[in-house]
Measured scan of single mutants.
Amino acid sequence: GATAVSEWTEYKTADGKTYYYNNRTDESTWEKPQELK
């Protein structure tokens, strides 16, 4: 099967917290998305 390329990108805020942003859905989350686990 084809490997899905994750749409999630990991970013850090100014105070060093990590969050994740999805370019396709324009969604952001503090929790690590399922695709990255």
Score class of each variant (00 low, 15 high):
T18F: 08
T29R: 13
K37A: 13
S6C: 15
Y21D: 04
T29W: 07
G16N: 04
A4H: 13
K17Y: 08
K32V: 11
N22T: 00
A2N: 13
E31W: 05
N23A: 15
N22Q: 01
E27M: 05
P33C: 03
K32I: 13
E7D: 13
T3C: 15
K17D: 10
G1L: 13
T18M: 04
A14E: 11
T25A: 02
N23S: 15
T13F: 03
T9W: 06
V5T: 14
W30R: 04
S6P: 11
K12D: 02
T25G: 01
L36I: 09
A14Q: 11
K17R: 13
Q34E: 15
K32G: 04
T9D: 06
K12S: 08
T25I: 03
L36P: 08
A4K: 11
L36K: 08
T18L: 08
T29M: 09
Y20E: 02
S28I: 15
T9A: 11
L36C: 09
G16V: 00
S6W: 07
W8N: 01
A4E: 15
P33T: 03
S6A: 09
T13S: 07
V5Q: 12
E10H: 02
Y20W: 15
P33W: 02
N22A: 00
L36A: 09
A4W: 07
Q34F: 11
N23W: 15
E35V: 06
E35N: 09
E31L: 08
G1A: 11
E35A: 09
E27Q: 08
K17G: 04
T13N: 07
D15H: 03
A2H: 14
S28K: 15
E7T: 05
W8H: 01
E10V: 07
Y19V: 06
V5F: 12
A4F: 08
E10R: 01
K32N: 07
N23H: 15
A4P: 13
A14L: 09
T18G: 03
T18W: 04
T9H: 12
T29G: 03
E35D: 11
K32D: 05
T13E: 03
K17S: 05
E35L: 04
E10P: 04
S6D: 09
A14D: 09
T18Q: 04
Y19F: 09
G16T: 00
A2Q: 12
A4T: 12
T9G: 06
K12Y: 08
L36V: 08
P33H: 02
